[in-house]
């Protein structure tokens, strides 16, 4: 084998790599926040909504979980275009990612909500808490705490999966890589660098979630239970 690795020709592109990292982080952060909010609401609707709403949310979750993100991204991007609306690729990317991650969050949160014992709800009712207060203080908070590790894994996967939006040329890290490798003809090296950047990102994101969890879930912090 005579291949000569040559990373130095990538050096001039360091700014572009960083821009890609930054946009990947932004895409993931926005999708995570919106996805979590939407997913939690869907989970509540599915646990406690009127029958028709339960069915609608259930069908939505099944459809999303049983079709590829890539196809969802294509549908959103090309679909919006054919409707005659001009949308920035980054916005279409966020939209598709949110639609996707809401379904996964809903499924995880549902498991968390189901794990909260009925007696807890009864106790809250007997203390005079209304439905909203009961939901927030007695159901959602412990449910989130319980499924937090599963949520974190899901959101790390989301960050990695955001690479798929490069296929509609959202300007995130993978799209940047695609451009740089066609400029430099150093494809293998480019993707090694980008692979390592993603690896680093996944550690950073995990670590950030861990820190956030320690901050928010005081019980876990105090009792030293692993998150």
């Amino acid at each position: 084998m005579t291949y000569q690795f040559e990373f130095s020709s990538l050096l001039p592109y360091w700014r572009e790599f960083l821009d890609g990292v930054w946009l990947t982080l932004q895409l993931s952060a926005i999708s995570t926040v919106l996805g979590f909010t939407g997913g939690a609401l869907c989970a509540i609707a599915r646990a406690d909504g009127p029958p028709w709403l339960k069915r609608v949310v259930g069908a939505y979750v099944e459809v999303i979980r049983n079709t590829p993100l890539l196809v969802q991204v294509f549908l959103v991007y090309f679909g919006i275009a054919v409707l005659g609306i001009r949308v920035d690729a980054n916005l279409a990317a966020v939209l598709a990612l949110v639609v996707n991650v809401v379904a996964y969050t809903c499924e995880i949160m549902r498991a968390g909500i189901e794990s909260v014992h009925k007696a807890q709800v009864e106790a809250a009712e007997c203390l005079g808490l209304n439905r909203r207060q009961t939901y927030w203080h007695v159901i959602l908070r412990p449910a989130i705490e319980r499924v937090y590790p599963a949520l974190v894994s899901q959101y790390v996967l989301l960050m990695l999966a955001s690479s798929i939006t490069s296929q509609i040329s959202a300007e995130e890290l993978t799209a940047v890589a695609n451009r740089i490798q066609s400029d430099t003809f150093r494809s293998f090296e480019t993707y090694i660098v980008v692979g390592l950047l993603y690896l680093a990102l996944s550690f950073v994101v995990r670590w950030a979630f861990w820190g956030f969890g320690m901050l928010v879930f005081t019980r876990r912090r105090k009792l030293g239970t692993a998150l």
Binding site: H117, A119, Q120, E122, A123, A124, C126, G128, H137, V138, R141, P142, E145, F217, R219
Partner: peptide
């Protein structure tokens, strides 16, 4: 508000 109840299984909020 007028009636308090205590259960066999305590039902304290664990978090």
């Amino acid at each position: 508000l007028d009636v308090g109840i205590v259960f066999q299984s305590y039902n304290l909020f664990p978090h």
